[in-house]
C-alpha cells in the first residue's frame, strides 16, 4: 500500500492507495487532491474572511448568493438540525462567540478562566432560509460554523473525484475523518486510543463509507481553578458539554452522516448515545460504532 500526506484544512490529510500506481502518478493525484481541497476551503473556511461562509456570516439577515456546494452543506446541516432536534447545531449564536469560540484553537488564550455562564436561548428551528438560485438567508444574530460536517463533505467529494480519476481501492483521511472506497476487501479503520495509549481501541471494517470520530479527549485544557474544559459545546446550554463519553466513532454510508451521529452520541453520553446509535443502526442510518467512556469502558457495536 502506498500513502501520501499533506496539511490542509488545519489538519493532516492522508491518502492511502491500494491500487498499483507509480510514484509520479501518486504525486500527481496528490497535487490535484490538494488543489481540490484548497478550492473547497475557500468556500467553507470560517477563519478566512474572504470565504463564502464568512461572507454569509457577515451578511446575516439578508439574502446572500452562495455556491452550490455551500447551499448543499447548509441544507444538510439544517436537515440534521431538525432530525436531531437541535443536538446537531452548527448555528452558533452571539452568546457563544464570547467563549473564545470565534478564533481557531491555536489562537485561543487558554490561561483565562472562561465565562461559565451563558445566555443561550437554543433555537428550535434552524435559523436559516433557502431561496432559489441558490440564495441563503441567515437569521440575524446567528453565525454558521460548519466545522466537521464541511470537512466530511469535502473529504467525501474529494474521494469521489479520486474515484473518477480511476482509483478503485483507497482511503482518504482528514483529521480523523476517513472515507473508504474499495471495490475489493473491506478496509480496517483503526480507532485512536482516547485514553492516551498508543494501541488503537478497536477497528471498524469499511468497504465503502465514511468513519468519523468525535471526542472530548483532544483540545482540552485545565483552567487556573482546576476545571477541565474541552471544545465540545452543548448546543442547549452554550457551555462545554457535560458528558461521560470520551470518544465516539461512527461508520455510515455518508461521511457527513457519520460525523453528525458521532457528535450527537457524544453529547448524549454513553448510555443514551449507545441507545441512539443502536436505533440509528436498526434504521439503516449507520452501520457500526464504537464508544469509549471516561470510566475507561469501550462499547463496540458491530
Amino acid at each position: 500500500m502506498q500513502s501520501t500526506a499533506f496539511r490542509a484544512m488545519g489538519t493532516d490529510v492522508e491518502l492511502f492507495v491500494d491500487d498499483w500506481l507509480t510514484g509520479p502518478e501518486l504525486s500527481s493525484l496528490a497535487c490535484q487532491l490538494e488543489a481540490s481541497i484548497r478550492r473547497y476551503e475557500r468556500i467553507f473556511s470560517r477563519f478566512d474572511p474572504a470565504s463564502h461562509l464568512s461572507r454569509l456570516n457577515r451578511q446575516a439577515g439578508s439574502w446572500v448568493m452562495v455556491p452550490a456546494e455551500l447551499d448543499e452543506v447548509l441544507k444538510l446541516a439544517a436537515h440534521w438540525f431538525e432530525q436531531t432536534r437541535g443536538y446537531f447545531d452548527p448555528f452558533i449564536g452571539e452568546d457563544m462567540r464570547r467563549m473564545g469560540y470565534s478564533v481557531t484553537f491555536d489562537q485561543l488564550d487558554v490561561t483565562v478562566e472562561p465565562i461559565l455562564a451563558s445566555t443561550r436561548v437554543p433555537p428550535v428551528k434552524p435559523p436559516v432560509e433557502f431561496g432559489t438560485d441558490p440564495a441563503v438567508r441567515l437569521q440575524p444574530g446567528y453565525e454558521v460554523d460548519l466545522g466537521g460536517i464541511a470537512k466530511g463533505f469535502i473529504v467525501a467529494r474529494c474521494a469521489e473525484e479520486l474515484r473518477a480519476q480511476g482509483l478503485r481501492n483507497f482511503a482518504l483521511s482528514a483529521g480523523g475523518d476517513v472515507q473508504v472506497m474499495s471495490d475489493g476487501e473491506p478496509w480496517p479503520v483503526r480507532v485512536a486510543n482516547p485514553f492516551g495509549g498508543a494501541e488503537p481501541i478497536g477497528t471498524l471494517a469499511v468497504k465503502r463509507g465514511g468513519v468519523a470520530t468525535s471526542g472530548t479527549y483532544k483540545r482540552r485544557w485545565q483552567t487556573p481553578s482546576g476545571r477541565v474544559m474541552h471544545h465540545l459545546i452543548d448546543p442547549f446550554t452554550g457551555l462545554p458539554a457535560d458528558t461521560d463519553a470520551l470518544s465516539v466513532s461512527v461508520c455510515a454510508d455518508e461521511l457527513t452522516t457519520a460525523e453528525v451521529l458521532a457528535k450527537v452520541a457524544l453529547l448524549l453520553g454513553s448510555d443514551r448515545g449507545t441507545q441512539y446509535l443502536c436505533a440509528a443502526r436498526e434504521a439503516g442510518i449507520c452501520s457500526s460504532f464504537l464508544i469509549a467512556t471516561t470510566k475507561g469502558d469501550v462499547i463496540p457495536c458491530n
Partner: peptide
C-alpha cells in the same frame, strides 16, 4: 458499508487509516 469487526483487537503495525477526534 461493510460490517465492523471487534473492539479491542489492535492492529499496531498496519499502516492504514486511523479515525480520531
Amino acid at each position: 458499508s461493510g460490517s465492523s469487526s471487534g473492539g479491542g483487537s489492535a492492529m499496531p503495525s498496519f499502516p492504514g487509516p486511523v479515525t480520531s477526534a
